[in-house]
Nucleic acid binder design. Structure first.
Ligand SMILES: [Mn+2]
Ligand SMILES: [Mn+2]
Ligand SMILES: [Mn+2]
Ligand SMILES: [Mn+2]
Lengths: 215, 215
DNA sequence: TTTTATTTTTAGTTTTGTCTAAATTTAATT
DNA sequence: AATTAAATTTAGACAAAACTAAAAATAAAA
């Protein structure tokens, strides 16, 4: 597989988690910042290689082979992110781009040794689960902070949006994975939350709460 | 720079250490396992980018810009090799290919943090020097074991040939970087050496001695 | 159910990096 | 100095991955 093919497969994987009955050409183009016509070309190529099943105008799904490949790329991406944060001291908003390159390094032995070196982590720095060497993903229980009942306490376990802007906002508010969040109140008008994070009171918009996973 | 351009620049760098007045097209083709005509094409491209100075039929040399780029690629290659051996437990004959890919990861921050994580090593697992962030290479004093006087003791500090075959031979004989070598005798007829390695007596062909650096 | 809008595909180019075969230049031998 | 050999470059082609513009299919609206 070329780097380009891998990037397509990974994007189709992520999109198919949301639309399992078929991923649209335009959606892929949007994620990869390319043109729909380029996507069509690539889908034919991936179909020839039996990585996706594709019928014109009907969208695309991953084959078993494509699904496994996708999970291996995601595994590499997330393990490298753990390495960058835990071992090299990068912050969680700096690692995505670099992992986007590292995920294409070919050696299977490398990634398994890296996995062991990191202590077989189950989640990446953004709380996303890491597939194991066989492609098994341990499901992490989580709810959006925006959907949780009032007057209960939770742990932050992940982010839905991992844009730099959002992650830096969390840093500023000293919210990290593991932080304890108690929901004090929800404003009826706009769903603004009053919460206590590690004991400190804070007001949080619905947009924020809608991108933070807790458990 | 594309991956391909980087591979060419690095090969030109290595070859120009041996032939500083100009590197031949065929030599480059041989190292990269490609055709001379492909090399000519690429040399024009590199020349346009001011990475090499090139006149048809006259061979190429690196410009200052190309020379620095080459050293940064070598730096990355060798730091990743140290990582693979010291941190992930690869043996010294397994790391070259993987480093060949890792050396193309773009982030400068990444490589400097990796350098720090590894404790600013000055040599890679094969004894080759690692350029620092500014491109400065600390010269490692060394002689070939084949050229050393008799009845003196040395430390192994590097290999000239880092092929799997040679490295595996050294492993079998329990010769590693740091091993103490005492030269007992040199056979006049074929320059075979009798040596003591970490106290154990051993007979070594000239070809072996000619690929082992000591100090 | 037509008509219109949107999505997707096709057709035809472009760039990068490679190749083969032929031409040219330089080097080595008579 | 002429001939032969080797090295290098040019010319033309190809595959991968992208693009633009136009055509076709599907979905939405009237
Ligand atoms: Mn990627
Ligand atoms: Mn992540
Ligand atoms: Mn390389
Ligand atoms: Mn090395």
């Amino acid at each position: 597989m070329t780097i380009s093919e891998e990037n397509y497969i990974k994007v189709i994987y992520h999109l198919s988690l949301v639309s399992p009955k078929g991923v649209n050409t335009n959606a892929i183009a949007g994620m990869l910042d390319t043109k729909a016509s380029s996507v069509t070309d690539m889908l034919k190529k991936l179909s020839d290689k039996d990585l996706v099943s594709y019928q014109k105008y009907q969208g695309v799904t991953l084959t078993d082979k494509g699904f496994f490949s996708a999970k291996m790329i995601v595994r590499k991406h997330r393990l490298w992110e753990v390495f960058l944060v835990d071992k090299l001291g990068f912050s969680w908003d700096e690692v995505h781009e670099i992992a986007e390159e590292l995920e294409h390094i070919k050696s299977e032995q490398l990634i398994n040794k890296l996995d062991a070196f990191l202590g077989f982590p189950v989640a990446d720095p953004h709380g996303d689960p890491i597939p194991d060497a066989k492609g098994v993903i341990k499901k992490i229980e989580k709810q959006l902070l925006s959907e949780v009942e009032i007057n209960a306490s939770f742990h932050c376990v992940g982010v839905k949006d991992s844009s730099t802007d959002f992650l830096k906002y969390l840093d500023k508010q000293k919210i990290a994975l593991g932080s304890v969040v108690k929901v004090i109140d929800r404003e009826d008008f706009d769903d603004t939350l009053t919460v206590e994070i590690d004991g400190k009171r804070l007001t949080i918009s619905n947009k924020i709460a809608n991108n933070l996973y807790v458990q």
